[in-house]
């Protein structure tokens, strides 16, 4: 049990720490690297919890595709030293106070709710492989898959439209 707890908490702490770094960095590229670390550690948690397929997807799509997309945008916008200085201007310590209070209140309520759960909620410790997931996904959840497909198609068209370079020129006559 202790080993199990350690297996869970080590990646969990890494994830929390790197996420904290993500939201505090001033350089976007650095923040993205920490985001990758956070996502990878969450992937480890998935794996140890018995969800190897989800872990693989987390690595491939989140840490791979999505973060790479972010990187491209950061590259295109060419965020250099000036943007870091601008971030320091925007990110004054006083800015943190009110949101931190709000989030703390939310944390307290959530901890209160989670701790109040009934006893003996221990994970089963079984591996649920890709075969089981696939069987379930394409039978009862088929409709959800279709809907996700629609969503992705809509996103594709939307991204294509928004990504055109001279969209703004038609806006103002």
């Amino acid at each position: 049990m202790t080993l199990d707890l350690a297996l869970f908490w080590i990646p969990a702490l890494v994830a929390l720490a790197s996420t904290l770094l993500v939201i505090t960095r001033k350089n976007a590229a650095h923040a993205l690297i920490y985001l990758v670390v956070s996502l990878l550690s969450v992937a480890v948690i998935f794996f140890v919890l018995g969800a190897p397929f989800a872990a693989a997807l987390e690595v491939v799509i989140y840490a791979g595709a999505i973060v790479v997309l972010f990187l491209f945008v950061v590259m295109m916008l060419n965020l250099g030293n000036t943007s870091v200085m601008r971030e320091s201007r925007w990110l004054r310590p006083g800015m943190w106070v009110a949101p931190a209070i709000l989030v703390s209140v939310l944390l307290i309520t959530m901890v209160y709710v989670i701790v109040g759960l009934p006893d003996a909620n221990v994970t089963k410790g079984e591996m649920v492989g890709p075969k089981a997931v696939g069987n379930e996904l394409f039978r009862p959840y088929l409709l959800a898959v279709e809907l996700a497909g629609f969503l992705l198609l809509a996103a594709l068209i939307g991204a294509y439209h928004l990504g055109r370079r001279y969209l703004e020129q038609r806006r103002e006559p």
């Binding site: 709000l102 989030v103 939310l106 309520t109």
Partner: peptide, 16 residues
């Protein structure tokens, strides 16, 4: 977003 967070607090408290 902040208002949504406040709303979330209220909802969670009600549920809890």
């Amino acid at each position: 977003a902040a208002n949504m967070a406040i709303g979330l607090i209220v909802v969670v408290l009600i549920v809890a």
